[in-house]
Nucleic acid binder design. Structure first.
Length: 936
RNA sequence: AGUCCCGUAGCUCAGUUGGUUAGAGCACUACACUGAUAAUGUAGGGGUCCGCAGUUCAACUCUGCGCGGGACUACCA
C-alpha cells in the first residue's frame, strides 16, 4: 500500500529557510555582513533619497540617552537599546529618515573612583592631566565593550561616529554652553550645605557617602526664654524650650528652634521650670527628666511664632521658626536648628546668616570665640559641650544612641554637614531678559511635550515645580572644568567670555586635560582686577561641572557636532529612557538646554520600567537572580530577547526569567514556522509568470489579504505609538488564528494537489508571497535578524527588508459572510471531537457535513464564491434550507457523518473513483493533474 | 521613613463611562495527523481579578485600610 501512496506526487512545501533558527550561531555572522554592507548607512541613504524625491516622510529622530561608560551591559541597557532600535526601525519602515547616533556619558565620580582604586597611592604623585588621561582610557575601554554588546543585540546606528561626552570637541562645546549659561543669567554662586569629609577635606557627592552605625551622645537641652518675652505670649515663668540633638557640637551654631505650626504642644511644669513639649512625646520627656509633669495648657506650634529665646550659654537671642518637617517621632518636637550644619536647617534659617565656626579640617575656628573649643575636632568637642551644658544646668538628659550615620567612604571618618560656596543654576531668576525664570520655562516645556505614558508629565512637573536651585560645581577632577579664574586674595571669581573662549579652544584640541596645563598668564585678561578686593593676582578654578550638565546638553551638542544631525533636528527629538530619568536626563536635558539655548530638546518622551526577575524582585548578586544579555546571546539569541522586549508592558516594571524567555522562544518558533510555511509554498515561484493580478484573486485569498491589511494597519499604528506589546501580540495571534488555523489549513489542498498552473493555486501563491513580504516587514523592527534571513529566501525580493515600507492598503473584507463561515467551522471542529474519540474518523476530510441554514444566511454563504468543501476541509457539504421556524442560536445546525466514498489516494478527500484506468480511484481533479503530468 | 507607581489564569497581556457565565496568545492535558514533521491542527482543564472593610440594586472596575513589589527622595534634629 505504501508504494501506491508514493506513486502520486504532490507539490509539497520546499524552502532552504531552515526550521531551526540557531540564532546564537547565525546572528553574529549576519552582523558581520551588516557591517560589511554598511547596512545602516545604506538604509539612511535610501531614506534621504526618498525625501529628496518627495516620496519620504521627512525626519523623525530618536536622540540616544548616553549610558555611563562604566561596566558591562546589563538587562536594563539591553531593554532600553532594543526599544530604541525598534523605534528607529519602525520609523524607517514608515518612510522616515531616522539617524540614530548613540552616545556615552564619560565624566564623573564612578570612573574617577575606579581609576583611583587601580592606582592606589600612586594617585597622589600623579599630575592632574595624567590622572585625567587614565580616566579617559578607562572610559574608552568600556565604551568599546558596550558598543560591541549593543551591536550584538541587533541595534543599528552610527556606531562609528557616536557622540561621546569626553570627546574634546564635546568637552569644548560644554565649556562654550556653560559660557552661555552665564550670559543667560542662569548661574549664581551661593552657599549650600554639603556632605563634608574632614578626613579628605572635601565635599562629597551622595555616592561617596556610606552609612555605618555610630554611637552618639544624644542630649536634651533647655534653651531659656527671657521672662518678658514669655509674658508677652502669656507663658509661665521661668520658661524653657527643650531641644534634642545627637550632634552636641552643632549647638554653638544654633540660630533657631523649629516647631511644627499645626502640632499641639503642651506647656508643662517640671519642678520649678516650665517647658513646651509636643504632646505625643510628653511621656518620653517625663522619663528623661525623671520628675512629674503638670500640664498647664496646650497650644499649637503656630502660637509660638513670634517667640524669641536665649542661647544656652552664648549671649545671643534667636527666634522660633515654623517648619513642616518637624515630627513627633523623637526628641521634644522642638528642633535645634543650625543653618551651617543641616540641609533642612539651612533652607529654613539661612536668612539668619551663617556662623562658619567649623573649618574644612573639621575643627572649630577662631570664630567660635571659645578657648576651650577652638582648634578642637568637632566630634572630640562633643563631651566638652555636654560637660558645659551640665555645669550650667542646661542639660536635661543625656543618653548614648546607636544610629546609622554617614561616613566618608575613603577616609572612613564621620561626615559633617557644612555650608560651603558652590555654583548654582538658578531656578527662579529671570533668564535672557524674557521675564521668565528657568522654572517657568521648564514647566512650559513639560506642557509642550508628549509624555508616553502620560503619567510621566505629572511626575516631571512635580519635580520641576519643587526642585531647589541646581548645584553644578563639584570638587573633583574627571569632568568639564569650570573655566573661570579666582582671586588669589579673596577667592572672588572672575568670569569673562574671553577666558571661556580661550579655554574652549585649548580643550577642543587637547581635551579637558588642557585646562590644568594652560598657562595662567595666557588666560588672564590684560587689565583683570578682582571686583571685590582689587587684587590683580588670580588662579584657575579647580572645581568641575556636575556631569549632568554634560549629558543634559547632549541634544544641543549632538545636533551641532554629529555629521548625521542638523541644527533644525534639535527641539523635535524623541527621548526614550527608564522612568528614573524623570529626575535624571529628562530633567537635566530640559533645564540645561533651556538655560543655554532657550529651547527644549525633545517633543516626545517615552519611558519604560525597570527589569525585575521572574518574581518581580530586583536583580541582585546576593539574590542570585541576575540574568545578563550576554548569556541570553549565547543560549537563545538576540531575536528572542528582542521579542521579549516587545512582549512586555514597558510602561511598568518588566519581568524576565529563564521561563519567560522560553515562552518567547516558543512564540518565536511559531512566527518562524508560519513564515517558513509561506516560503515553502513559494518554491520555484517566478515573479515573471506566476503572479496573478489582484482582480483574479480567489475570494479566500482576498479575505486573507484583507485580514492582513487590517493587521498591518494595527501593527503600524502600534509601533508608531510605542506600543510594541500590542504589535507583537497582534502579529502572533494573526499567525496562530488567521494564518495557521484558517488560511493554511484550507490552501494546503490547492497548493499540494492542484495542477501547477491552476488559477486558484496561482492566486494563492501570489498572496502567499505578498503575505510573506508583508509579515516580514511587520516583524522586522523586532525580529531583525530573522526578518533579514527571511528576506533572503523570498523570491524576487529586492533590496533590504529595512529599506521597505510598511504594507498599506484598503481592506475589502466581507466580514459577515466570512465570520459566518468561521463560526460554522468552529462548530464543526467541536462536533468532530467526539467522532475522533470514537475512532470513527481521523481527519476532517473523512467526514461529510449537512448544514441546516436559516434562509437569510443562504446568500451569505453563497457570496463566498468558494467551494464549501474546501473551506471547511471536509469531503462533502450539503446545504439544507430550514423552513418554518427559524433556527435557534447562530442560525445553523450541523449534521456530521463519516464519509463513505472512495478516498482519493492523492489528495485524501473521499471524492475518489472519478479517474480512468489505473488511476480509477483518484478524484476528478487529481486524475486530471496526473493525466496532464503523464502527457507532459 | 516620605512621595509616586503597580498587583487579572503557570507566563506575557486585554478587559470601553461600575452592568449577563472575566477574555487572548503561549504553556499544560488529551486527541488527530504524519504531505509545515525536532512541525501542524482540534478540543479541554485552569482564575476568592493580592486581602479586608465600605459606597451601590450591582465592584476586577469607585473609596479607605492593610499586604507584597518597584521607582524616586531622605536617613533626620
Amino acid at each position: 500500500m505504501s508504494d501506491l501512496k508514493k506513486k502520486y506526487s504532490v507539490f509539497l512545501p520546499r524552502t532552504a529557510f531552515p526550521m531551526k533558527a540557531d540564532l546564537p550561531q547565525r546572528e553574529p555572522k549576519r552582523l558581520e555582513r551588516w557591517k560589511a554592507d554598511r547596512l545602516y548607512e545604506r538604509i539612511e541613504a535610501k531614506r534621504r533619497s526618498d525625501n529628496a524625491a518627495g516620496t519620504g516622510r521627512g525626519r523623525r529622530i530618536l536622540h540616544d540617552g548616553p549610558p555611563y561608560a562604566n561596566g558591562a551591559i546589563h538587562m536594563g541597557h539591553a531593554l532600553n537599546k532594543i526599544l530604541k532600535d525598534i523605534v528607529v526601525k519602525s520609523l524607517w519602515l514608515d518612510g522616515y529618515e531616522s539617524p540614530y547616533v548613540p552616545g556615552w556619558d564619560c565624566h564623573g565620580l564612578p570612573i574617577e573612583h575606579a581609576v583611583e582604586k587601580d592606582l592606589g597611592p600612586k594617585r597622589r604623585e600623579m599630575p592632574r592631566s595624567e590622572f585625567l588621561a587614565k580616566c579617559r582610557a578607562y572610559a574608552q575601554k568600556w565604551i568599546d565593550a558596550q558598543r560591541t554588546g549593543f551591536q550584538r543585540l541587533g541595534v543599528l546606528g552610527a556606531w562609528d561616529q557616536p557622540y561621546v561626552t569626553m570627546n574634546p570637541i564635546y568637552e569644548a562645546s560644554v565649556v562654550r554652553l556653560f559660557a552661555r549659561l552665564f550670559e543667560s543669567g542662569a548661574v549664581t554662586r551661593k552657599l549650600k550645605v554639603v556632605h563634608w569629609s574632614y578626613g579628605a577635606r572635601t565635599a562629597l557627592a551622595e555616592a561617596e557617602v556610606e552609612y555605618a552605625d555610630r554611637t552618639s551622645s544624644a542630649v536634651t537641652v533647655a534653651f531659656p526664654v527671657k521672662d518678658e518675652d514669655a509674658r508677652k505670649l502669656g507663658l509661665p515663668i521661668p520658661f524653657y524650650l527643650p531641644i534634642w540633638t545627637t550632634t552636641p557640637w552643632t549647638l554653638p551654631s544654633n540660630l533657631a528652634i523649629a516647631m511644627h505650626p499645626d502640632m499641639e504642644y503642651a506647656i508643662v511644669q517640671a519642678g520649678d521650670r516650665y517647658y513646651a513639649v509636643v504632646v505625643p512625646l510628653l511621656d518620653d520627656f517625663q522619663k528623661k527628666l525623671g520628675v512629674a509633669l503638670h500640664i498647664k495648657e496646650i497650644r499649637k506650634g503656630i502660637a509660638f511664632q513670634t517667640l524669641k529665646y536665649r542661647h544656652a550659654w552664648i549671649d545671643r537671642e534667636s527666634p522660633v521658626l515654623l517648619a513642616d518637617y518637624v515630627t513627633a517621632d523623637a526628641g521634644t518636637g522642638l528642633v535645634h536648628t543650625s543653618p551651617d550644619h543641616g540641609v533642612d536647617d539651612f533652607n529654613l534659617a539661612h536668612h539668619l546668616g551663617l556662623l562658619e565656626l567649623v573649618g574644612p579640617d573639621g575643627r572649630f575656628t577662631a570664630a567660635v570665640n571659645d578657648p576651650e573649643l577652638e582648634g578642637k575636632n568637632v566630634f572630640a568637642a562633643n563631651p566638652l559641650v555636654v560637660a558645659r551644658l551640665q555645669s550650667i544646668g542646661a542639660l536635661l538628659h543625656e543618653e548614648q544612641l546607636t544610629h546609622s550615620y554617614p561616613h566618608c567612604w575613603r577616609t572612613k571618618t564621620p561626615i559633617l554637614f557644612r555650608a560651603t560656596e558652590q555654583w548654582f543654576i538658578t531656578m527662579d531668576d529671570e533668564l535672557f531678559h524674557t521675564g521668565k525664570s528657568l522654572r517657568e520655562l521648564g514647566l512650559e516645556g513639560v506642557e509642550a511635550t508628549q509624555w508616553v505614558p502620560p503619567q510621566g508629565r505629572n511626575r516631571i512637573h512635580a519635580m520641576i515645580s519643587g526642585r531647589p536651585d541646581w548645584c553644578i560645581s563639584r570638587q573633583r577632577a574627571w569632568g568639564t572644568p569650570i573655566t573661570v579664574l579666582r582671586c588669589s586674595e579673596c577667592g572672588e571669581p572672575l568670569v569673562c567670555p574671553e577666558i571661556f573662549e580661550k579655554a574652549a579652544a585649548a580643550i577642543e584640541q587637547e581635551g579637558i586635560e588642557a585646562w590644568a596645563d594652560l598657562p595662567l598668564a595666557q588666560l588672564t585678561p590684560a587689565d583683570a582686577k578682582c571686583a571685590k578686593c582689587g587684587s590683580t593676582a588670580f588662579q584657575k578654578e579647580t572645581d568641575i561641572l556636575d556631569v549632568w550638565i554634560d549629558s543634559g546638553v547632549s541634544g544641543v551638542v549632538a545636533s551641532a557636532t554629529s555629521p548625521e544631525l542638523r541644527k533644525e533636528d534639535y527641539g523635535k527629538y524623541i527621548y526614550l529612557e527608564g522612568s528614573d530619568q524623570h529626575r535624571g536626563w529628562f530633567h537635566s536635558s530640559l533645564l540645561f538646554s533651556l538655560a543655554a539655548t532657550g529651547e527644549k530638546p525633545y517633543n516626545t518622551v517615552v519611558t519604560h520600567g525597570f527589569v525585575l526577575d521572574g518574581k518581580g524582585q530586583k536583580m541582585s548578586k546576593s539574590l542570585g537572580n541576575v540574568i545578563t544579555p550576554e548569556e541570553i546571546m549565547k543560549t537563545l539569541g538576540a531575536d528572542i530577547l528582542r521579542l521579549w522586549t516587545a512582549s512586555v508592558d514597558i510602561s511598568e516594571d518588566v519581568r524576565i526569567s529563564k521561563d519567560i524567555l522560553e515562552r518567547n522562544a516558543d512564540a518565536y518558533r511559531k512566527i518562524r514556522n508560519t513564515l517558513r510555511f509561506l516560503l515553502g509554498a513559494l518554491a520555484d515561484f517566478d515573479s515573471a509568470k506566476d503572479v496573478a493580478p489582484e482582480a483574479q484573486w480567489s475570494p479566500l485569498d482576498r479575505w486573507v489579504w484583507s485580514a492582513f491589511l487590517n493587521l498591518a494597519k494595527e501593527v503600524r499604528e502600534a509601533y508608531l505609538a510605542f506600543d510594541f506589546l500590542k504589535a507583537t501580540q497582534a502579529i502572533l495571534s494573526f499567525c496562530q488564528l488567521e494564518l495557521s488555523g484558517r488560511y493554511f489549513e484550507i490552501i494546503k489542498d490547492r497548493l499540494y494537489c492542484d495542477r501547477l498552473d491552476s488559477p486558484r493555486r496561482r492566486s494563492c501563491r501570489t498572496v502567499c508571497l505578498a503575505l510573506a513580504k508583508g509579515m516580514t516587514i511587520l516583524v522586522a523592527p523586532v525580529l531583525s535578524f530573522t526578518a533579514d534571513e527571511i528576506w533572503e529566501h523570498l523570491p524576487g525580493a529586492e533590496g533590504h527588508v529595512f529599506e521597505q515600507r510598511f504594507p498599506a492598503g484598503e481592506s475589502r473584507a466581507e466580514p459577515s459572510s466570512w465570520s459566518l463561515l468561521w463560526r460554522i467551522k468552529e462548530a464543526l471542529n467541536r462536533s468532530l471531537e467526539p467522532m475522533r474519540a470514537a475512532k470513527e474518523i481521523g481527519t476532517s476530510l473523512d467526514t461529510k457535513v449537512s448544514i441546516s441554514l436559516s434562509p437569510e444566511l443562504r446568500p451569505l454563504l453563497a457570496s463566498l464564491q468558494e467551494t464549501l468543501e474546501d473551506l471547511l476541509v471536509v469531503s462533502s457539504v450539503d446545504i439544507l434550507i430550514a423552513g418554518g421556524s427559524p433556527l435557534a442560536g447562530d442560525g445553523f445546525e450541523l449534521q456530521v457523518d463519516p464519509h463513505v466514498g472512495i478516498k482519493c489516494p492523492r489528495c485524501w478527500n473521499h471524492r475518489g473513483g472519478a479517474g480512468a484506468g489505473e488511476h480509477a480511484d483518484l478524484c476528478l481533479r487529481c486524475s486530471e493533474v496526473v493525466q496532464a503530468g503523464v502527457e507532459a
